[in-house]
């Protein structure tokens, strides 16, 4: 359903020749949109480069990529657009970067969200991953920098992680190109609906909050029957997140729940 608008256009001759495939040129017409999220300094841009063949500079500086980068690749005859979201530690505070990332995942509803993690700082990275899993059903976790992790004597149990998080987990070392093929396979399977996942949901049992959340989530469910992540929206509503309050009051959140949105809308909604 999500790709209907894209699929029609990918057939027309004007939709870019094969030469553009790995050039990372803005692919206006793509079948799928993939978002890349992750903490700063996790080698997210390296994963981006490995997937698109672009060479975006990635300094050893937390928070190097400020602007959102876009690129594309094609796989199994389908065109994918890859959006590199700003590196953030969380989706909760109101910094500009986090708002862009949050709004993109929530309102932009990418076909797949890849969360890049650093195995040496897994706790902090999982903090973001868990938050992402609260607002999307289609996520893949990519544990990057495995080469460094091995140098540190770390072993990561990918299957255990996948079981705990409820989403596919790929171990990778993007700088060496390790694991990129597996990541592509997972992206392909998830985008085409051949794999499904049940992301781990957090409970909200802090004090008397659960009742309020249930009440609001129930009301949201009545007002916007198809809306996913009701509990999360209810939580943000309760905390008074201005962007979410606005989206609920104007009914925008319901419209967004219905269909896939083009990048233009996302640009508009990330202000």
């Amino acid at each position: 359903m999500a790709q209907t608008s894209g699929a029609n256009c990918s057939n027309c001759p004007a939709s870019g020749g094969g030469k553009l495939e790995r050039l990372g040129v803005k692919l206006g017409q793509s079948d799928f949109v993939i978002a890349l999220a992750g903490n700063p300094n996790t080698g997210k841009s390296t994963v981006f480069n490995a997937l698109t063949g672009l060479r975006q500079h990635t300094g050893n500086w937390p928070g190097k990529t400020i602007a959102r980068a876009e690129g594309g690749f094609s796989l199994g005859g389908k065109k994918y657009k890859l959006v590199d979201l700003p590196g953030t530690y969380s989706l909760l505070s109101a910094t500009e970067d986090e708002e862009v990332a949050r709004n993109y995942i929530l309102f932009g509803r990418p076909d797949v969200t890849v969360v890049v993690l650093d195995p040496m700082r897994l706790e902090r990275n999982l903090n973001l991953a868990l938050q992402v899993l609260q607002i999307t059903e289609k996520a893949i976790v990519c544990v990057n920098l495995m080469d460094e992790a091995r140098a540190h004597g770390l072993e990561v149990d990918a299957r255990g992680l996948a079981r705990d998080l409820g989403v596919p987990v790929v171990l990778a070392a993007a700088r060496q190109g390790e694991g990129i093929q597996e990541l592509l396979t997972e992206i392909d399977a998830m985008a085409n609906g051949r794999s499904s996942c049940a992301p781990r949901k957090l409970s909200y049992d802090i004090g008397s909050v659960q009742e309020s959340i249930d009440e609001l989530a129930g009301a949201l469910g009545e007002a916007f029957p198809n809306m996913p992540h009701r509990e999360w929206v209810a939580l943000r509503l309760l905390e008074g997140d201005p962007r979410i309050v606005e989206a609920v009051a104007s009914g925008e959140i319901g419209v967004l729940a219905e269909d896939h949105v083009s990048t233009e809308t996302i640009n508009a909604c990330s202000r």
């Binding site: 953030t88 530690y89 969380s90 909760l92 505070s93 109101a94 910094t95 706790e123």
Partner: peptide, 11 residues
């Protein structure tokens, strides 16, 4: 404010 949220997010 911003500072508190930053530090919370950093763990």
């Amino acid at each position: 404010g911003l500072e508190r949220n930053r530090l919370l997010d950093l763990g």
